[in-house]
């Protein structure tokens, strides 16, 4: 039995005990999947599992706190479930996690880079290691690995780290370590170049806050500093400075919490590569506290704990 059929069976069997199960289904075109909220047995038929299941569905869990919810997760998504539970933002016992081995998720921005404008896509097929599409009557193809999200190329957790059901056999991780080479390389640039990069990128931000709302760990929701008047940290002016300020606050609030699902960047309608900011903080958190959010469900997040003497922070004797 393939992974999808097995997953459907598991969901169908569990659904009667739950309010709903969240998965993915085909969206408005063959390259866009969309979250599927399964409430009735027939909804399960629409479930799909493939490289186009890009969304981290854990984002919906805090808003469904008082419901019995099932959720399908990729490995990276499962870290959000762990972290949310660890922070008390969801009750783990109210969530039924359906895991499966993830072979990586496509980055549609990369697909566009490889295949050109795909807004007229008529069909798409994942055949082995190839993504084949028909756009405006013309066939185009690309190796899947060229269009996988960066996070997938450095994925160490392809299988859900927490799950109540698992469909298929766990697969092996693509890599064993994350060297944060992207962060190191960027930091090697002169300060001016780095600042110019962000000014250039943030300029086109439309302040839609898709980055924030797609983030499973962004839970301030209606009380975000982005709109707050008290404190009044950012203005509503369309200035790069204000947009940048928000991104810095966003990244700082995620220090030790970000699970690197990359949803912030994927959700951005103008493709600003903002995951880099969170990567930077994650690198620091790993070096300082030897911690990765959501990996160990029992580990105490460093910013939720306190030690008189931190191992890697030299607080005295500079």
């Amino acid at each position: 039995m393939n992974v999808l059929s097995q997953l459907k069976e598991q969901i169908a069997a569990t659904l009667p005990n739950l309010d709903l199960v969240i998965g993915w289904e085909r969206g408005f075109d063959p390259l866009h999947h969309t979250p599927l909220f399964m409430r009735r047995p027939e909804d399960v038929e629409r479930l799909v599992i493939d490289a186009l299941c890009v969304h981290n569905l854990a984002v919906y869990l805090p808003g469904l706190k008082n419901k019995k919810v099932g959720v399908a997760v990729k490995g990276c998504d499962s870290r959000a479930v762990n972290q949310l539970a660890r922070e008390g933002l969801i009750k783990r016992e109210n969530v039924v996690v359906f895991g499966f081995p993830c072979d990586g998720a496509a980055d549609l921005t990369k697909v566009r880079r490889q295949l050109g404008d795909i807004s007229g896509v008529q069909s798409a097929a994942l055949e082995g290691d190839l993504l084949r599409v028909v756009v405006d009557g013309k066939e185009r193809e690309t190796p899947l690995k060229d269009v996988l999200a960066d996070k997938c190329l450095r994925c160490r957790y392809p299988n859900a780290l927490t799950h109540d059901h698992f469909a298929g056999e766990p697969r092996e991780a693509r890599v064993q370590t994350d060297d944060y080479k992207d962060v190191v390389d960027f930091e090697a640039l002169p300060l001016e170049a780095r600042f110019a990069h962000w000014q250039q990128e943030m300029q086109r931000c439309i302040r839609c806050y898709a980055c924030r709302n797609a983030c499973p760990m962004c839970v301030c929701r209606d009380h975000c500093v982005a709109q707050s008047r008290d404190p009044h940290w950012v203005t509503q002016e369309d200035e790069t400075r204000e947009k940048w300020m928000f991104q810095i606050i966003h990244a700082m609030h995620l220090a030790g919490r970000c699970v690197e699902c990359g949803e912030c960047q994927r959700a951005c309608p103008v493709d600003i590569p903002i995951l880099a900011l969170k990567r930077k903080l994650n690198k620091e958190i790993r070096e300082l506290f030897d911690f990765e959010a959501g990996v160990d469900p029992q580990a105490v997040p460093p910013l939720l704990s306190f030690q008189v003497e931190e191992k890697n922070i030299n607080e005295r004797g500079w």
């Binding site: 979250p35 909220f37 439309i206 839609c208 806050y209 898709a210 709302n213 797609a214 509503q236 002016e237």
Partner: peptide, 25 residues
């Protein structure tokens, strides 16, 4: 609306969405 994440991408990218806020800065 179940899957909507309540961001503003739709409204801010919409050529006909004209609603606005007024704030003192």
């Amino acid at each position: 609306s179940a899957k909507c994440i309540s961001c503003g991408a739709c409204t801010y990218l919409c050529p006909t969405c004209y609603c606005f806020n007024i704030t003192d800065e």
